[in-house]
């Protein structure tokens, strides 16, 4: 019965989704969760920008398709892809096995460590079960950081889960959170280089175990859109060769 219901609900969603039935895309809709500085965010004028956006647009141009960015909150971003609200997700998504069961990933286009950030006066050198005991940890719901922290520290610490990274930073400033765990450059730009408070990285940048931290960021597609993924892979290779990739990288992270 449940299966029947899900099937009919999926049917409805598919029927309701727009006309992009064709296998050959000339218009690709890309789901993105903003803001996530500096990967994807809006400028003061309201324009969508960031590393993912610039690289994605460059890839689309390379392939010769038009791209449309569709905003979607993180915790519904994969279901949105599967129910055809958009055709790809390029939103700082780490490639890992759990997600591979649901979606098809492009080649990784950047690798990004995670890191702990806390107020400078928290006074711990390293995050482990002893130092985190009794603290309140902030994570973005459904991220690999959430999974890692939940599996590793939910017995010793309180975990607060947020829909957006913005709300999390707000609660960090409000001193509701003791420590947060997020992608290193995001923490660097929203907490450390921000003058609202005095924050610092705690311990080293983290990239292991691969089971959680995966193989870098990839663009996600529906499983059957292999041709589309292949096109993006080719475009990425070309952009890396002709220097466009390095130029975009330098725009957001400085020279390599």
């Amino acid at each position: 019965m449940k299966k029947l219901l899900s099937v009919s609900l999926i049917g409805l969603t598919v029927a309701a989704a727009s006309t992009a039935q064709a296998r050959d895309y000339d218009h690709v809709r890309i789901g993105v969760d903003v803001p996530y500085v500096p990967m994807e965010y809006r400028t003061a004028e309201g324009d969508l920008t960031g590393f993912d956006i610039d690289l994605g647009n460059a890839m689309c141009e390379q392939i010769g398709v038009t791209c449309e960015w569709i905003e979607q909150e993180w915790d519904g971003i994969i279901p949105g892809l599967l129910s055809r609200n958009y055709d790809a997700v390029m939103s700082s998504m780490t490639i890992n096995d759990e997600r591979r069961q649901q979606v098809l990933f492009s080649d990784p286009y950047i690798t990004m460590p995670s890191a702990w950030f806390a107020a400078s006066d928290l006074d711990i050198d390293e995050a482990n079960e002893e130092t985190l005991e009794g603290l309140t940890i902030g994570v973005q719901r459904g991220t690999l950081q959430d999974n890692y922290v939940t599996d590793k520290y939910s017995s010793v610490a309180n975990i607060s889960r947020y829909s957006t990274a913005d709300d999390m930073v707000l609660d960090m400033d409000a001193q509701r959170l003791d420590i947060v765990f997020l992608d290193f450059p995001i923490g660097q730009s929203t907490l450390v280089e921000n003058d609202n408070g005095d924050y610092t990285i705690v311990g080293e940048q983290i990239t292991e175990p691969k089971e959680y931290f995966g193989d870098g960021f990839g663009i996600a597609f529906r499983q059957r859109d292999e041709a589309l993924a292949e096109k993006f892979n080719e475009a990425l290779a070309t952009l890396k060769e002709d220097g466009t990739y390095d130029e975009i990288y330098a725009r957001y992270f400085g020279e390599k």
Binding site: L9, D75, G76, I78, P79, G142, D146, N147
Partner: peptide, 14 residues
């Protein structure tokens, strides 16, 4: 909140 958490962890809304 619990449903949203399970949804975002296993990508299954239903």
């Amino acid at each position: 909140g619990a449903a949203r958490y399970v949804y975002s962890r296993f990508y299954t809304p239903f």
